[in-house]
Computed example of a mutant assay.
Amino acid sequence: MVRADTPAAASVLAWDLPTRLAKWLLAALVGLAFASKYYGDPAMVWHQWNGLAILVLVVFRLLWGVVGGSTARFAAFVRGPSALLGYVGGLLKGRPAHYLGHNPLGALVILGLLGLVAAQGLTGLFTTDDIIVYGPMTPVASDATMARASALHQQIYPFLLALIGLHVVANLAYSLFGRDNLVRAMITGRKPAAAYVDRAPATPGSVIAALTCLALAVAIVFGGIALAGGNPFP
């Protein structure tokens, strides 16, 4: 029998390793993509590789959101309007419901980030400066498509930065003033044992499932570009 004051009893699994790795790798790649746009990559070769890697991670996360650990699945944390309004109401009253995984408001931010990052990566496939930079899909895209994609690629950028900033501030604020240290939990994968609205502890996804999702994500991104007539290798 485990005593209540032992580490095993003091914390429970919140997010499995593939979910955490995908989050931190995606954050690092987005940061590198922004850096490579402005520093030391005039031909945008590394920028394009970053974009392709980002698309692979986004596809992986979508697949993992179906077959991954219990708190990684979209069905587990994407909730309806009533749950969202109830959570926001409790938050405004200083009594928010306690979730092991993403709360309803956090779920919206996660979906928004995935959507904007995916849009940024997809438009990048068709982006060109007509001089040096040609995205992987420019060989089969019309001039109008490339012009529109290039414009959207620039227009999405400030919204993505704003949502990333909101996400960082919200996580830091919740870690400093809330009941959980979300930053530490996303590193260690564990949260204090407590009464959560969703199931605790989380059920991790399998390693085989994670590797399968990763292989499928690589095939979907690179294979999809090749099948569409593009150049998947910048």
Rank of each mutant, 00 (worst) to 15 (best):
M1S: 11
V2I: 12
D5I: 03
D5T: 05
A10P: 07
A14I: 11
D16W: 14
L21F: 09
A22F: 09
K23R: 15
K23H: 15
G31H: 02
A33W: 09
A35H: 13
G40R: 09
D41A: 00
P42S: 03
M44N: 15
V45A: 13
Q48G: 14
G51N: 04
G51Y: 00
V56M: 06
V58Y: 06
V58G: 03
V59D: 04
F60S: 00
L63K: 02
V67Q: 05
R73H: 05
F74H: 06
A76I: 05
A76V: 08
V78P: 15
G80Q: 12
V88A: 15
G90K: 04
G90H: 03
P96T: 11
A97D: 10
A97F: 06
L100D: 05
G101R: 03
H102R: 02
L105G: 15
L108F: 12
I110R: 09
G115F: 05
L116V: 05
V117F: 09
A118Y: 00
A119S: 02
L125E: 01
T127G: 06
T127Y: 01
T127I: 04
T128D: 00
D130W: 14
I131Q: 11
I132K: 10
V133P: 07
V133R: 08
G135V: 01
P136F: 01
V140E: 13
D143W: 09
D143I: 11
A144K: 08
A144V: 06
S150A: 07
Q155P: 10
Y157S: 14
Y157P: 13
P158E: 07
L160I: 00
L160A: 05
A162M: 02
G165N: 09
G165P: 05
L172T: 09
A173I: 15
S175C: 06
L176I: 10
F177R: 07
L182Q: 07
R184C: 04
M186W: 07
I187S: 07
R190Q: 08
R190T: 08
K191Y: 03
P192T: 04
P192G: 09
A193S: 12
A194W: 13
A195M: 12
A195P: 06
Y196R: 06
V197F: 01
D198K: 01
T203Y: 06
V207S: 08
I208Q: 06
A210V: 01
A210K: 01
T212W: 13
C213E: 07
A217K: 11
A219P: 01
I220S: 14
F222H: 08
G223M: 01
G223C: 02
G224R: 04
L227A: 07
G230Q: 14
F233D: 14
